[in-house]
């Protein structure tokens, strides 16, 4: 016999289901008067530092059909590369930037949209700088455990080329699935859940 480690097991995930909006974006689905506004709809204010951008896109299933019932959360550093989190030990992040956003895909078009800023670079575990990126978490009906991916920026070719996470992708043909294309004032990022264009998802 050995000493028991005594660790608990993480609660198992279950799908968010088709009515995730009731809990996470109630105003979006017409349940008004309970919360003043839906959490995560506003990431920036007038004093937020950095370049304003929009992120738009769709989440597509294995047939290329957009999901009209997905929910996406994003988490990113501020313009100086600092996270608005108690676990951020490198300095104080911009108090006018939450770093976290939540958006449902449109019930008709499947489009999602975030209004945010372009993040600064943050270090990898060994201190090398990662390219600017936004972390995404995607849940929906039919997704049993939330999917994690990253958005990188198409106009950061030099930084992307030295990014230690992108460098780990063995099949180089898949790297572009994580690169958002510049599109007007922002970037477009489609997420393919399955198939030939399947987005790289992470076990974080």
């Amino acid at each position: 016999m050995v000493q028991p480690l005594g660790y608990l097991k993480e609660s198992a995930s279950q799908t968010a289901g088709p009515y995730v909006h009731i809990g996470l974006t109630p105003n979006f689905c017409g349940i008004t008067g309970v919360y003043e506004s839906d959490l995560g709809t506003t990431m920036v204010n007038d004093r937020t530092l950095g370049r304003r951008i929009t992120i738009t896109g769709r989440v597509l299933d294995g047939t290329g059909t957009p999901l009209k019932d997905a929910l996406i959360e994003i988490w990113q550093a501020d313009a100086a590369g600092l996270y608005n989190s108690p676990s951020e030990l490198r300095g104080s992040a911009d108090p006018n930037f939450s770093g976290w956003g939540r958006a449902a895909t449109d019930g008709e078009t499947g489009e999602y949209r975030f209004e945010t800023i372009k993040p600064g670079r943050v270090p990898f575990r060994d201190g090398r700088l990662m390219a600017p990126h936004i972390s995404l978490w995607i849940v929906a009906r039919g997704i049993n455990l939330g999917l994690n991916t990253r958005l990188y920026f198409g106009d950061e070719a030099a930084a992307n080329a030295e990014d230690p996470v992108l460098a780990r992708i063995e099949h180089r043909v898949r790297v572009p699935t994580l690169i958002a294309a510049a599109d007007g004032d922002g970037y477009r990022f489609d997420i393919h859940l399955q198939g030939e264009k399947e987005t790289v998802f992470f076990d974080i």
Binding site: V122, M130, G142, N144, R168, L193, Q194, F202
Partner: peptide, 17 residues
Amino acid sequence: VLRSPQKALLSLDGTVS
């Protein structure tokens, strides 16, 4: 069936992100 990735996940030990 149509909403599950078919390719393996890329392992990423926690960075500050």
